[in-house]
Design a binder for these strands. Structure first.
Length: 1004
RNA sequence: GGGUGCUUAGCUCAGUCGGGAGAGCGUCGCCCUUACAAGGCGAAGGUCGUGGGUUCGAACCCCUCAGCACCCACCA
């Protein structure tokens, strides 16, 4: 907390919040604010710590509203007055934190006993990091899988932990030191590392706390850090073994050098971007004074390190000067003209300057021709002493300027053109990367890559979606050796020692290294100062976290893990390397499946980034945030402070009222519903809005059920005969929904799971079944037995649904389940350990489904007439029915009560002859529905409506008849398709006749 | 230069085996009907990017083109 700007920000925020709090007090008069009003809260996470997290946890008992002790459950129709033991409105905050704490305390996240195993490795987030939308998305999917499998009784482990993230963490701590005017060199290596550890222990837990807010059910008791002693031991072990096998070697190579961070980085950490630059055409005079060659370069300063000029061997223009010498401008050196087929004669002048120490291609050409390598840079990319005195000590860009000026002065600059080029930059520092000749450690990758390719080819690892394996193969088949040494202080120190003459000794410890080489103690050794690439330790994560190299029970139980859930951006960085090292050291793949999810973008499809100011903090979506703190948050700590004004305007426009509080479940459900197969997902606030409403719907449906049932357990299972059609129908629907949910979980289609749950709960259970149940329960004639069956079904289907939805919305489902399950006589105290429902537990009932679906068309038909004829919704209307199949007639009789209530029909009259000319019509199967027109109805409206429907049907019929008239269709299409079309034609013909008759009557 | 995706309603997206184009949000109309206005009921809205091919039949399979996005790569 030593950062003055952060302190300032926090003070500002606190002052602001205090003001808002006072304003709000005035508005709501000290009472609980109405829904939608955002309670200001301290958004202190600017500095990565959230002191509010878990500070004031209500006990589970306090978290729900007044208990109903003493109130006797009434189960008659007067039960409406009964106030159930569930809060009146859905308030996620009242339930989420307490529930999570209870789960964690009870140890529910730990693996249970059981033969079937399920394990996911959390991609360890950066210990310096805080939760962003990508994490939140990914964690939701993993948690859904974990909960789904845990509920199936599998011994389930979600292994969590954090990554030391070498460069990133070191940079954060160095920046903090910088604010105090210190550098890491002022502290020295040992003190600096101490400072990093200290910082880690203070700020490192942020993301773990935030993961808890997401409801992530990971086994915290097994939390690991890549620099834990045990994991460091694994790192050393792997390094030493690979070295012993000759798969790790040290060598002087051209590597990607970050001159700002002063370290080598791997190919993957270099990001090339197209930038506008220039290309300089420079004259290199022939030594014999007969002219000059023109070479083109985008980097004139590298001229100082040139050792040759190459031309294509078959280029007629230059054939006779191959082997002659050129005077290297500005330098007192001669360089040869060489022939190499690498040169493209068509590009520029067809002459290429060769600078082996500063260009990857030139390096290869240089090797081919045994040319010297002249390094002209220092570690900071300033000109070194290998260059002429005039340029020494100049930064690379200052040197460029001077060199260009000098060339021009000497008349050696032929031309300068604007030129677009790919500029390599370090992904962390954004510094322009130099190819630079240094001693580094490498992993010889080809022998590791081969089995790693094979295990995906033969299906031992499966990518989901499948096409990502192509990307994987593409990279693995063109992979280069991996540079693993970094010139940093924070990380795993390389277990190698040097004597005075530079001989290398590798061992698990210095004494082992000595012993292996038979060195006596009086030979002085110094350890390699470098550390390993962070991804080296990450690559071991699937087995190092389980105790490797020791043979632990966890390792035997959970390796190979079940699935890896991750983004495509780290397939190369991490996934591929885990596969290679997993196969190497465990002899088995690290995971069976790799589920690749999309990247979370903002609503416009832009990548979310701090510098764009379009970041959404998942915690803000859960808790809500008012506009002012949001603006402050988005504009604080920008890399380019000049963007602040723009970001502020955009933020104020997009969130004029801040962000409402949605709760974790709504956020999770949104993420699940966005998890389609595409490459990226856009996060739209409209979606989360809708899913918060869905949670509210579940809440209120439960309130209704509890009102209807009371709070005493239901006695006895109803007899089969007491189930009405609605009860049979909703079970049938539940069965299909359940099947879809299970299938989609198995195939990682979380979007389809979410959709199936949403549609079942809202469209089937709430909109239809509850309404139908009301009819039965309000019917004084209905036998108790039937009412009991109805109540039982209300509860049973709800309880099923809660188990079915739990993996996606753990908090609300658990909260409600604990209230609902006892009514079923269930004793568990959390739904997360209950069995995930099986399709086999619910029998299909096609007959009930067909009948109820027909009834729905009747009700929908009447409702449509009512709406389109502007009849008052509350007014009961008479309904006449004509015709209909035997089944329809029976159904009508059986379901009359439901139809009357749901369609708001006064009475239903069967007529043999359509005699009422002024009636409006709807069709339900073979039955014709007629609603007598009342005085106020405009007959023309009805004519128009029927006319439109007729037009649609006639068009349909024509298409169907056209099909049936095609001989080849009847001959070649499957018979069931032909039959279906025939039936359609008959039905349509019949309906058209009935509507035409009705239209004729109206026109009289 | 090589590779991979995407293009379906105003917006964001589903569409699995090739067989009557779907959802959410938004829009419009009516309703505070005793679980829920964070709600209920109803409605409008689509040449499935373009052009061709295969097929009895194409949003879906094949090819062409266009636009967009991403990944990889050493063209000075």
């Amino acid at each position: 907390m030593s950062d003055p700007t952060l302190d300032e920000t926090i003070n500002e925020l606190e002052a602001l919040i205090e003001t808002k709090r006072e304003e709000l007090q005035e508005v709501v008069g000290g009472r609980r604010p109405p829904p939608g009003v955002i309670l200001p809260r301290l958004t202190e996470r600017v500095d990565g710590i959230d002191p509010m997290l878990f500070r004031t946890l209500p006990t589970p008992a306090e978290s729900t509203s007044s208990p109903t002790a003493g109130s006797s459950a009434k189960t008659s129709t007067t039960a409406m007055k009964f106030e159930p033991s569930i809060a009146k409105t859905y308030e996620p905050h009242a339930i989420e934190r307490a529930r999570y704490a209870a789960w964690e305390q009870a140890g529910h996240f730990k693996p249970s006993a059981g033969d079937a195993r399920y394990c996911i490795m959390l991609p360890p987030p950066n210990v310096t990091g805080s939760l962003h939308m990508g994490h939140a998305f990914q964690d939701t999917l993993m948690d859904a899988l974990i909960r789904y499998h845990r509920m199936q009784g599998h011994s389930t482990l979600w292994q969590c932990g954090t990554d030391h993230a070498g460069i990133a963490t070191q940079m954060v701590v160095e920046r903090q030191l910088g604010l105090k005017g210190q550098s890491r060199h002022d502290l020295g290596r040992e003190k600096f590392i101490e400072a990093v550890w200290e910082w880690k222990s203070e700020s490192g837990g942020t993301i773990s706390q935030q993961l808890r807010r997401m409801g992530a059910s990971m086994d915290w008791s097994r939390e690991r850090f890549t620099m834990d002693p045990a994991l460091s031991k694994a790192v050393t072990e792997v390094f030493v073994r690979l070295h012993e096998e000759g798969l790790i070697y040290r060598g002087k190579r051209l590597v990607n050098w970050d001159p700002v961070l002063n370290t080598a980085i791997s190919d993957l950490e270099v990001v090339s971007q197209e930038e506008q630059g220039q290309i300089w055409h420079i004259r290199y005079p022939l030594e014999n004074g007969t002219g000059h060659l023109v070479v083109a370069t985008t980097r004139p300063e590298t001229l100082l390190g040139d050792v040759a000029v190459a031309v294509h061997p078959e280029d007629e223009r230059y054939r006779r000067i191959i082997g002659k010498y050129l005077k290297l401008p500005l330098c007192d050196r001669s360089i040869p003209v060489i022939a190499d087929s690498y040169v493209d004669p068509a590009f520029g002048s067809g002459c290429l300057k060769i600078t082996p120490a500063h260009d990857f291609n030139d390096y290869i050409v240089g090797e081919r021709h045994s040319l010297p390598k002249i390094n002209i840079f220092t570690d900071n990319a300033a000109i070194n002493d290998n260059a002429p005195a005039a340029y020494r000590g100049l930064d690379r860009y200052a040197a460029r300027k001077k060199i260009v000026a000098d060339l021009e002065a000497q008349g050696l600059l032929a031309r300068v053109d604007p030129h677009k080029l790919m500029v390599p930059r370090g992904d962390r520092s954004q510094a322009v990367i130099e190819p630079y000749l240094t001693d580094q450690w490498f992993v010889s990758i080809a022998p590791l890559a081969e089995p790693a390719i094979k295990c995906v080819e033969d299906g031992r690892i499966r990518f989901v979606p499948e096409n990502w394996s192509k990307t994987y193969f593409e990279w693995m088949r063109n992979i280069d050796d991996w540079c693993i040494s970094r010139q940093l202080w924070w990380g795993h120190r390389i277990p190698a020692w040097y004597d005075r003459s530079g001989n290398i000794y590798v061992g698990r410890t210095e004494s082992e290294a000595r012993a292996k080489a038979g060195l006596s103690l009086d030979v002085a050794l110094t350890q390699d100062p470098d550390v390993l690439d962070t991804w080296f330790s990450s690559a071991l994560w699937p087995f190092s976290t389980l105790g490797w190299p020791d043979k632990t029970p966890e390792l035997a139980t959970f390796y190979p893990t079940s699935v890896l859930v991750t983004g495509f951006d780290i397939i190369f960085f991490w996934v591929a390397r885990m596969i290679m090292l997993g196969l190497k050291f465990m002899g088995e793949v690290p995971f069976r499946e790799v589920y690749i999810h999309g990247l979370v973008r903002d609503a416009e499809g832009n990548k979310m980034s701090k510098s764009k100011g379009n970041i959404l903090d998942p915690i803000d979506l859960i808790d809500g945030i008012t506009l002012e703190p949001l603006v402050v948050k988005r504009t604080t700590g920008l890399m380019r402070p000049e963007d602040a004004a723009k970001i502020e305007v955009a933020t104020r426009r997009q969130f004029p009222n801040g962000i409402p509080s949605y709760g974790t479940d709504a956020l999770r459900f949104t993420f699940a519903s966005m998890a389609t197969q595409g490459r990226d997902v856009r996060f739209d606030l409209g979606r989360i809005d809708g899913y918060r409403n869905f949670c509210n719907k579940i809440w209120n449906a439960t309130r209704f059920v509890l009102m209807m049932v009371g709070d005493n357990p239901l006695k006895g299972t109803p007899s089969v005969a007491s189930y009405g059609l609605p009860e049979r129908w909703i079970r049938h629907r539940l069965r299909s929904a359940l099947g879809e949910v299970r299938d989609s979980f198995e195939s990682y289609r979380f979007d389809l799971s979410a959709q199936a749950i949403y549609e079942f709960v809202w469209d089937e259970y709430c909109d239809w079944y509850i309404e139908l149940a009301k009819v039965t329960l309000n019917d004084e004639q209905a036998p108790d037995e039937v009412k009991h069956a109805t109540r039982h079904t209300l509860v049973e289907v709800l309880e099923f649904s809660l188990r079915m939805m739990h993996p996606l919305v753990p908090f609300i489902s658990d909260e409600i389940w604990c209230k609902v399950a006892p009514l079923m006589g269930k004793r568990g105290n959390t739904v997360m350990l209950e069995p995930f429902p099986n399709v086999a537990e619910v029998a299909p009932d096609d007959a009930a489904a067909r009948t109820l679906d027909w009834m729905k068309t009747v009700i929908l038909g009447v409702r449509r007439i009512r709406a389109e004829s502007n009849l008052e919704p509350s007014k009961r209307i008479p309904l006449k029915v004509h015709g209909g199949s035997t089944a329809e007639r029976q159904a009508l009789q059986a379901l009359e009560g439901y139809i009357k209530q749901l369609a708001r029909v006064e009475k239903i009259e069967r007529i043999d002859e359509v005699d009422d000319p002024d009636a409006t019509t709807a069709l339900a199967g073979e039955t014709t529905l007629l609603v007598p027109l009342l005085d106020l109805i405009d007959i023309n409206v009805e004519r128009e409506r029927i006319g439109k429907e007729l037009a649609r049907m006639t068009q349909d019929l024509q298409r169907v008849q056209g099909k049936l008239a095609t001989e080849s269709f009847v001959a070649k299409a499957p018979p069931e398709i032909v039959d279906k079309e025939r039936k359609r034609a008959t039905d349509l013909g019949d309906q058209i006749t009935r509507l035409t008759d009705q239209l004729a009557r109206l026109q009289r």
